[in-house]
């Protein structure tokens, strides 16, 4: 096995996705299959090869003030708001 149930559970906590017991079992098997396929990369000689994170150069821009959306537009899709704030349940007890 490339990945076990405990690791999948750990990863689901990192990804902030709750999983039930059935999902946990299914994902463990499926991720194992996929990782098994990905193993072909192990055999590739990449000594001295630089990683390439994309196919273009990163560009910089000037830090200039520009128009943005109206506050009402920014809030229009929030599930819960109060006055000009987005509302959530307590983060810290």
């Amino acid at each position: 096995m490339a990945i076990d149930k405990e690791t999948v559970e750990y990863v689901s906590r990192l990804a902030k996705i709750r999983l039930n017991e059935k999902e946990l079992g299914e994902y463990t098997n499926q991720l194992d299959d996929i990782l098994d396929h990905i193993k072909v990369l192990e055999g590739v000689d990449t000594k001295g090869v630089e990683p390439q994170y994309g196919t273009i150069q990163t560009v910089m821009r000037e830090d200039k003030i520009a128009d943005s959306l109206e506050q009402s537009q920014v809030l229009q899709n929030a599930p819960d708001t109060e006055d000009e704030y987005i509302k959530v349940k307590p983060v810290l007890e």
């Binding site: 902030k16 996705i17 899709n77 987005i86 349940k89 307590p90 007890e93």
Partner: peptide, 21 residues
């Protein structure tokens, strides 16, 4: 939080976040 579906029956933001996803 900012947009999209939210599960609203949790006790804390963290629980709601995990179940939302």
């Amino acid at each position: 939080v900012k947009y999209g579906f939210r599960y609203k029956d949790g006790d804390s933001m963290w629980e709601e976040l995990e179940v939302t996803r």
